[in-house]
Design a protein around this nucleic acid. Structure first.
Length: 358
DNA sequence: AATTCGGGGAT
DNA sequence: ATCCCAGAATT
């Protein structure tokens, strides 16, 4: 579609955007590295939450070569608190791939971009359109919501077949000559105007919107409910000796891969102080005191109940260090990426807080 | 096709 | 409490 035969929907979206666009930093560039970085950060993440990370990461890794040559631990430390940590791992993987096999230059088409680690249909379309002007539609949560309402589409957007249907519609709507602006505009429209609780009173499209006409804006998009999160019970043991802490990096196929934590013992229900802790023989013979722990740490798919104990090992005792564990001093532990649950555990306890923040 | 990956803000 | 966020990878 060109400018001369725009769908009324597209014309209205572009017009609305010209007077309602926010001034966001990644809209001031076409540099694919900057666009890519911002899009990975913004996956399932609100603008307000991602914004400080965008500035911090771009400052720490100004170019893709900086990122490619960086220690992955530094990336995880900078990603700390943002969640979905596989994004950081794939970011590094793709940076190295582009630096080495693409001579530091991004591929310029949707088809090539979508092959890269961490870049799926949405992000490939975003980079291809914003950086290179390719007329491929972004289909994110905003686009699902707007199109479902405007065209009265009843399909459950949680079904994987839904993406295909919405992408085909969006492809019909995207102006060939204004692909980047249209993609920015439709997402901005979804964020500010056709939001989950819509502002139909001021909407320029309400007279042609099926959901508004049929009073179904509350029912669309049709989204099946996600199942209830499962409960987990994490027991942490902060083992300290000579100002060092027994810690490990999580590497199992589980949450928080690549992040660091204290000795952990998971139970099937709220646990009392156990007789033994996994691979550790006699830790509990040393002075042990319970610490205040986050009562409940909420993830989108898990509820984690936590108890924590401080175990102070006398200087002259030799503790065998199990596989994957190591003694680490406060300075080194500070530089490790940690789950927010661990950060809260530290913050909530004065002694830990003083030990671990200088 | 369904599940798993975080964390926070708005309602 | 519930929803949802500029989704992607894995099962």
């Amino acid at each position: 579609m060109t400018k001369d035969n725009l769908h009324p929907f597209s014309e209205a979206i572009l017009s609305w955007y010209s007077s309602n666009a926010r001034d966001l930093p990644w809209r001031q560039t076409q540099d694919p590295y900057v666009i890519w970085l911002s899009e990975i950060i913004l996956q399932q993440t609100r603008v307000a939450q991602g914004l400080p990370y965008f500035h911090k990461l771009l400052n720490t890794f100004p170019t893709i070569n900086h990122l490619a040559e960086a220690d992955e631990a530094l990336l995880f430390r900078n990603w700390q608190g943002l969640g979905y940590y596989s994004r950081a791992r794939n970011l590094h993987k793709t940076a190295k791939l582009i630096a080495q096999k693409y001579h530091g230059l991004f591929p310029q088409t949707y088809h090539e971009l979508v092959k890269l680690p961490g870049i799926g249909p949405y992000t490939a379309a975003a980079i291809a359109s914003f950086s290179f002007g390719e007329a491929v539609p972004v289909v994110d949560g905003n686009v699902f919501r707007i199109l479902a309402r405007y065209f009265g589409i009843e399909i459950d957007i949680m079904q994987s077949s839904a993406r295909k249907e919405f992408t085909e519609i969006a492809q019909q709507l995207i102006p060939t000559d204004y692909a980047a602006t249209f993609n920015q505009a439709i997402m901005e429209f979804g964020s500010l105007q056709c939001s989950p609780v819509p502002n139909c009173g001021t909407c320029p499209l309400r007279l042609s919107c099926v959901a508004f006409e049929t009073q179904r804006t509350q029912l669309l998009p049709n989204k099946s409910k996600s199942k209830a999160p499962r409960n987990r019970y994490f027991n942490y043991f902060i083992v300290v000796q000579r100002n060092k802490f027994l810690v490990r990096m999580r590497a199992d196929k589980d949450i928080w891969q690549g992040l660091w934590e204290f000795v952990q013992h998971e139970t099937l229900q709220v646990a009392e102080l156990p007789d033994a802790i996994g691979p550790f023989e006699n830790l509990l013979t040393f002075p042990t005191t319970e610490l205040q722990a986050p009562a409940k740490h909420l993830l989108s798919h898990q509820r984690i109940f936590t108890r924590a104990w401080l175990i102070q090992v006398p200087d002259n005792v030799n503790i065998p260090v199990p596989e994957n564990f190591q003694w680490m001093d406060a300075q080194d532990f500070e530089n490790c990426g940690k789950p927010v649950l661990i950060l809260n555990l530290i913050t909530d306890n004065l002694v830990l807080h003083e030990w671990l923040h200088e």
